[in-house]
Every structure is written in C-alpha cells, then in structure tokens.
Design a protein around this nucleic acid. Structure first.
Lengths: 337, 337
DNA sequence: CTGTTAGCGCTTTCAC
DNA sequence: GTGAAAGCGCTAACAG
C-alpha cells in the first residue's frame, strides 16, 4: 500500500500543503470552514494518515518516552509500566520499554539508544542493582529523566520514592493492635549499598515502631540475609528451632512471608492465632495464600502514573515544583494478621 | 545541550556529509582508512549522536515494533512482552507497548497510531476479549502483524498458538498416573465465542483424555462458569456439597486451582492424598501455594520471542514459511498432584 | 484566508 | 575515494 502524503491531499483539493497541515493540526482561524470541510473529506477519501516521523523531525519531539527497568516481566515493574502507559496515553504519548537485567551497561546502552531515537523523556524504575548515576547525568541534558524507587545521592534528579520506613511502622503497629507483642523480623541482606536501601528503611521502621510502642527488640528476633520463599521458610524454621519466643513476624517481602507461612503451617502453628504474619509489597501472591496475607502495598501503579505526569509536565515546560515525591505505603489487612 | 549534526561533523573534518554518513554506516570501500579514522575521532570529540528520526524518514523504517495486549500488568502478558523485547533487542529493534483493556476501539486506535508512527510491525497478544479482525486486516497492509494466542478464522494471519488441548491431556494423564480415577474439571464460561476458545480446548482435551484412558466422565464432574479464586472455591464447595465422588480436580486456570485448594483445605481434605489438583498457566502463584501447585505451563515467553523473530524475518524480507505455529504446553509437577 | 519558501538531519544517486 | 544535490513528509515563517 502506497502511503499517501500531505502533498497529494493538497493536489487533490487544489490547496497547498500548508493549508492541509493547518487543518490537520486544528490551527484556529487559518482556514475557512468550507476549506476545512473539503480537506477532511479528501483525507478520508484518500485514506491519508499523517507521518509522525516526518512531523517529529521538524517538531524536534517524538511524543514518545522510554521506560527503563530491570525486568518488565516482574509483576511489580509491569504494574509501574501500566501506570506510565495510562498517564501517557491520556496525553498522547507512546511508551517504549527496555530491560536491563540489572546490568549497568545495558542501562547505559538504552539511554544512548533513546537519545538517538530522540525520545522526549525517560523514566527509570530502580533499574540497576548497583546504582550509578553516570548515565542519568550524562543524558539528562538530552531529555528529562525521572527516577522511581531509585536512590541517588544527588538531589538534582526528579524522583518518586516510597516510604518504606513508614510502611514498616504500619506493619508493626497493626501487629501491636491485634495484640502481638513479640514481633520478629525476617529480611534480606542489609548492606550499606544504596541498592538495598529499601530493606534498610523497612528494618529501621521496624525498630523505630518497636521502640515507639515500648516493645523490646532483640537481635534474636531478627533474621537477616534471607531471600525469597525458601529464605522465609528457612528463617522461620530457624526461629522455631532456636525456640525464640515470638507471636508475630513482619517479613520484609511477600515472598519471605509465604515461606514463613509454610514453615508455620508445617510446625502446626495457626496463623494468625498462634503467630501473625505480615508481608511487604502486596504482590499478587498475597491475596492467594492460605490464609490470605496481610501486607503493605507499594503504590507502584500510582508511582508510574505520577512519574509520567511529572515527565510530561517538564517536557511541556510547565513548572513542576518538587523534585522528589515520597509516596506512602499502605496497610492491606487480610487474614494473616 | 545543542545537538550536533552530521553536517557539523563534516565541517569539523572538512569532509562532506555523505562521507560522514558512509563511515557511520560502515559502507565498505567508500572511505579511506585515514578518513574513517578522522571521522570517528571527530564524532567522539564533538559528542555526535546520529538522529534516528531523520534516518527513519529517509529509510522508511523506524526499527521499532509495537505490542498490543489487554494489560501489560498481567504477569502472563508481561512475560510475553519480555520475550518480544529480548528478541528485538538482539536485532536492534525497539518495542513500544499499548494496552487495550479488551476494548476493541482502543485496539483500533493503537493500530492507527502505530501506522502513523511508521512502526515496522506489530504483535498482538490476544488483545481484545471480543475478537474482531477488522483492524488487523485494515492495517496489515501498512505493516506485518503477528498474533499470539488469538483465534481468528482467517488463515491469512501469522500466528503463534498454544496447544491447550494437549496441555489438558497432559494434566489428566498425570492425574491418572498418580492413581486418580475420578477426575473433576472446573472451568470458566465455555461459550462459542472465539475469545474463550482456549477454555474450550482445555475442556475438550480433558474429555478426550478421559475417554482415551477409559475413564468415565460425567456431567456432575464438571463445573463450568466459574472464575478466579472465588470461583474455584465455590465450585469445589459445590462439588463437595453435592457429594460428588472425585479424587482429583483439573482446574482450567491456576486461580481456580487456588480457590479449589482453599476449599479442600477448609474441608479438611489432604492434597494430594485425598484429592489431587492440577492447574493451568503456571502463573507465579503456582509455586507459592501450599502445597505447591502442579500445573501446565504456557510458554508465553517463548511465544513472544518467536513472534518477534517471525516479525523481523518478515520485515527484513526473509522468507518465513509457516503462517501458524502451535507451541506445546508443558506439565510442571510440584506437590498438589 | 491561502500559497511560497525554506528547512528538520539524514541517505543516496551521480558526477568528479 | 569524495562531494554536490535532491528529497524523505511535514511545519513554520512570511508574503500576498
């Protein structure tokens, strides 16, 4: 199918290309009603579709933004992408996605490709495990960038963060409210690395809440360095084996909580009667466990949508005051606590 | 940051734009080694990045494809997108995504936008609930399209399908092998609509396998019209309430299976000893249930990758023989059966 | 209100 | 081996 151009529409209507362009872009008062009418019917008859590539070349903008993340097949990230997509669709922007698998070189390569593609902006969802801002910095002059859940020392970047600290407090407070007093905590590797910052915040929130509530924390109540369902299982087994006295466990991730649930189940303990458990993330899994998992929701969809709105505001030169936005996490009460 | 153009590189090196273009595109024998050298260093020094939009305009291709689906935040779809993305990245293509929420108008709109953006091809992952091929047809002349898990009466389209029928057979056979003989089936609304075709195939596979194994099926063993975890729960409750004699249940979706597991658990029945259950999809959920769910995996990642490869083959005019590819589903044995 | 002209940044004949 | 010129399809002054 031969593409029909604006020029052909012009010839067909015996008008000039600029006039066609004007009615196409709804320029007010630049064409008489009859002309407008004539042009539109011609467009329909010829089956004309504007060529965005040509338009982009002259307008210097593509109406497309890029989203860089670790892995789009991760439910949490894909939820963020959906948020971005919805906001973008509303404003007439397209979304192009790229996965890094936590490799910084991939991230750098994507930035370069996006610059060459002349994307109007980029959103990064905590993409590389090992965070390095060089790429962001380097390309930040080519297009605006907004970061989601990515820690960086520089205050220069636009970012959306989650309040993991407060989320952890919510979890502990809830456990307290349902009568639990000996609250354990299972978490991952807590390193100084900014990549694991979220877990650090959750841990600190846990400690702070205990203190605030007048509960005594102790080293034996916390289990660090565990990952995934297996990790949660092992950690709980360990807690049990060591005869630690606990009536609740706050897991820093839902997957840990699921393993925990399993270990508790095998030990013949009842949830939440004997021991209550709350997770973190509100992954899809949470509403499907037995019992259903009480957890802390990370508003990733909202973050994606906000990031996109923010980006669009910047791109369209509307002032967008705060560089950093911190989104609250939210307690989702189900059955496990 | 002012973008530097190929023209500036030309002036800087005292060469012509065409020469710069030639070395940029590695045209053999179109530039002397010294020239090539000089150009590259100039490019580096000036920080030149080629403008893909301009290139796309003259080359008439954008090196970008579109993926249209119902909802990218669905784990299964996002897995497919990941497959597409990986294959595309390997061949230097970008991926732009769009959600339809099963609304045909959205699908039509996306096709139009993609045509205007001059995308080189489009992949549709069973996008609209109510399938209508008009859009595909209409735009198929603008760019090649490949369909994933989408049924259409037309044999004209390139498509990747899953063998749901055989997957169901695998499930039933497995149940048979572990000694079960009274196999129930919980499924969704089985209508004639092509949209629900997958469930029909699974149902037919179930029936066929029973027959093949010499087991007797009966109407009371199958429960139709249930959806999601709640549905699986209700259906199983119903099976129990009606005192249907069964020792296994094959659920047409993992979510149904999870509800089933819950009902069984509440009824004090042991899985898989008393009743075994197998699901379908191998969603993330499957490996996190208690007991872990035995299920049928749909190779969505592979389908995405294959669809992308196929599309690229077509776009680059390599012959790509079979229009339709049917991918086998795979039994994943865990604990529930 | 409408048309003419000149690019946007790149690739590509076709001379030299 | 290198350069000049034309043009991809569209928009944006600027005239008329």
């Amino acid at each position: 199918m031969k593409r029909v151009t604006i020029r052909e529409v012009a010839e067909y209507t015996k008008l000039s290309p600029s006039t066609i362009s004007n009615v196409l872009n709804g320029k007010q008062g630049k064409a008489s009603p009859e002309t407008v009418q004539k042009v539109w019917t011609a467009i329909k008859e010829l089956g004309f579709e504007p060529n965005f590539v040509a338009r982009s070349l002259v307008l210097q903008r593509t109406n497309t933004i890029g989203v860089i993340m670790r892995d789009i097949s991760s439910p949490l990230y894909s939820l963020g992408v959906r948020g971005v997509e919805d906001a973008c669709a509303q404003h007439g922007y397209g979304v192009i996605v790229g996965n890094t698998d936590a490799q910084m070189e991939r991230e750098a390569a994507l930035f370069q490709i996006y610059a060459r593609k002349q994307l109007d902006g980029v959103i990064v969802i905590s993409a590389s495990g090992q965070v390095k801002d060089d790429h962001v910095c380097k390309w930040n002059s080519a297009f605006p960038v907004v970061l989601i859940n990515r820690y960086s020392d520089s205050a220069e970047f636009n970012k959306i963060l989650f309040d993991h600290y407060h989320g952890a407090c919510l979890a502990v407070e809830h456990l307290f409210k349902v009568g639990k007093r000996k609250i354990a905590h299972i978490t991952g590797e807590i390193a100084a690395s900014t990549a694991r910052k979220a877990l650090v915040e959750r841990y600190e929130g846990y400690q702070a809440a205990l203190a605030y509530l007048g509960l005594e924390g102790s080293a034996e109540l916390v289990r660090r360095g565990y990952m995934g369902q297996e990790g949660g299982y092992e950690a709980t087994k360990d807690l049990l084996a060591q005869k630690v006295d606990f009536d609740a466990v706050f897991c820093a991730e839902d997957t840990l909580a699921i393993g925990c649930l399993r270990a508790l189940f095998e030990a013949g303990l009842r949830v939440p009667t004997d021991v209550a458990v709350v997770g973190f993330d509100d992954s899809l899994l949470a509403s499907h466990t037995i019992p259903r998992l009480t957890t802390i929701r990370i508003p990733m969809y909202e973050a994606g949508a906000m990031a996109a709105e923010k980006l669009i505001n910047i791109m369209e030169n509307r002032d967008d005051s705060p560089k950093t936005v911190v989104l609250p996490c939210e307690l989702v009460v189900r059955e496990s606590a």
